[in-house]
C-alpha cells in the first residue's frame, strides 16, 4: 500500500507542477507552489517511512514550517508590490 501511496504522490507532484507552469494568474502559481510544498512534506513522510530515511520526521516538520513562511512571504511581498508592479 505504501508503494501505491508513493506513486499517487509522485503523480500529484507532477500535476501540481503543471498548474504552477500554466498560471494563468500569479495567484494560481502561488497556490500551486504552496500545494507542491504540502505534497513534498507528505512525500517525505511516506517515502521516509518506506525507505527508512534517517530522522525523516524532523525534516518533514521543517519543510512544513518553511513552506508556511515562504507562502506568507510571497503573499506579503506581492501585496506590497502590486500598486506599482504593472509597470514593466
Amino acid at each position: 500500500m505504501i508503494a501505491a501511496a508513493i506513486v499517487a504522490l509522485l503523480i500529484t507532484l507532477a500535476l501540481t507542477l503543471i498548474r504552477a507552469f500554466m498560471g494563468p494568474s500569479i495567484y494560481d502559481r502561488i497556490l500551486a507552489v504552496n500545494s507542491f510544498g504540502t505534497k513534498t512534506v507528505l512525500f517525505i513522510v511516506v517515502g521516509g517511512h518506506a525507505l527508512g530515511w534517517f530522522s525523516y520526521v524532523d525534516i518533514a516538520l521543517m519543510y512544513a514550517l518553511v513552506n508556511f513562511i515562504g507562502t506568507l512571504a510571497v503573499m506579503r511581498f506581492f501585496e506590497q508590490y502590486s500598486p506599482h508592479g504593472e509597470r514593466s
Binding site: 504552477a20 507552489v33 513534498t40 521516509g48 525534516i59 510571497v74
Partner: peptide
C-alpha cells in the same frame, strides 16, 4: 515574470532537497 520565476526556484530547491534525501544526504537536505 520574475516573480513566478522566483517561486519556481523555490520549488526547485524543494525538489533538489528531496533528491538529497533520496541520495542519503540527510544534513544537506536539511
Amino acid at each position: 515574470d520574475l516573480f513566478a520565476v522566483t517561486m519556481l526556484f523555490g520549488i526547485f530547491s524543494f525538489v533538489s532537497a528531496l533528491l538529497f534525501l533520496d541520495l542519503d544526504a540527510v544534513d544537506v537536505a536539511f
